[in-house]
Design a binder for these strands. Structure first.
Lengths: 220, 220
DNA sequence: GATCGATGTCGCCGCTCGGCGACATTCGAC
DNA sequence: GTCGAATGTCGCCGAGCGGCGACATCGATC
């Protein structure tokens, strides 16, 4: 994924194997930094996320992060902007709602899709965990970007379906989303949640079954 | 929150040289350390939780933490053991189940009780956030203690009621607990969750209403 | 060829961290 | 009284952190 850390160090001899010197390519460097930051966040979490770590991972000097992104905050903003692509990757065009007859059909499908998407996306998971653990400027920016991406995704998937009368869909859906996020986070961190094991796919089937039951219970 | 036997500590500030002589009381020092650790965790979260910070807050030398608790891990164990008291504080003896006719009644009540308890307990909130953010030895120990306390609480409150047939109560309840935990964490961190504001008591009423609806939907 | 801005690199600063060795003070047993 | 252990204190170490000034190198332009 990331370019190997340029063996330009003249330890033994002049590298004849490299006819062309590594180009000074600001765009590539910026990309390397951004990718390193995303990868670092996804792999290590926000605990060890800092200027030095990103620079190490990107194989560049940390000064460049200051120059190109204005420091960690700017870099986090860039990650947030990059999060917009999350939506496009996760909209199945073909099942755009024409087979979803009821709001319950829709929410059942969305719940399972969101669950799966979160399980498959370590970066998103780390960001969610970050959101509930800190309240710094960086987190706020990232959180806003994620929130917007999620809202856009829900909006696009919803189509023209409307929730049944008498149900506060915003509140209910917030709770459903909260449940999904926390279940995935718990599983990712400790392999279980409130006594429910969440490791084998059999475990996840039980969770999905329960989730469907809950959605159907409230939305019919 | 915690009884402070020493009137010398000003509010959340490093204790200066007291005119009053400080007695050599190992028990009191141990208590001060434990209280400082709990308070620090509750107030600052796990980000800045370390030997130096605890010692500073306790107004003692960090060496004593090593001596008395065997380091941070032992101190965390002590916090975990202390968590057992959580159960006793939150069992209303009078409404021990005799007015709860159905499992749905029970779970509705438990959900709201748990929600309120979490909202009122910053330490517990921080621990939950810690659980989903890290997977270190310390977190594992603390998490286990919390899990056991929660399970005990649920067990005692459940009484003799049994869930309806055909419902995977373990899975469903895990999702409900996950939802509550994440809602409270999100609110605590950012004042909202998935587009649902969670600041004013009016907001919380909406959330509670939605939660009740969900519980009733699945448990009747 | 000389110049100058863009790009990349190096090393220092002050700080906090966890850990620990060494010392100071007090108290109880004898 | 004496002495040893319990209790409390001090300061150092190596490491990592964010931040930044100064330098090195390259490419385009004149």
């Amino acid at each position: 994924m990331l370019n190997d850390p340029m063996p330009l160090t003249p330890i033994a001899s002049a590298p004849q194997a490299e006819p062309e010197k590594r180009v000074r390519d600001r765009g590539a460097t910026e990309k390397a930094i951004l990718n390193a930051a995303k990868a670092l966040l996804a792999e290590e979490g926000f605990q060890n996320f800092g200027i030095n770590a990103v620079a190490r991972k990107a194989g560049c000097d940390k000064q460049l992060i200051y120059r190109y992104y204005g420091g960690l905050n700017g870099l986090v903003d860039a990650i947030g902007a990059d999060l917009g692509t999350w939506v496009k990757d996760r909209i199945p065009e073909d099942t755009g709602g024409m087979f979803l007859l009821t709001y319950g059909d829709l929410m059942e499908r969305l719940s399972l899709l969101f669950l799966q998407a979160l399980r498959d996306d370590p970066l998103m998971r780390r960001i969610v965990a970050w959101e509930v653990s800190e309240n710094t400027e960086q987190v706020r920016r990232l959180s806003e970007a994620r929130s917007k991406a999620l809202a856009t995704w829900l909006e696009r998937m919803r189509g023209s379906l409307t929730p049944p009368k008498g149900v506060d869909a915003v509140a209910v859906n917030a709770i459903l989303i909260a449940a999904i996020q926390h279940i995935v986070l718990s599983a990712s961190a400790g392999g279980q949640c409130a006594g429910l094991a969440l490791k084998a796919s059999k475990d996840w089937e039980k969770a999905e079954q329960a989730l469907k039951r809950i959605v159907r219970g409230v939305y019919g």
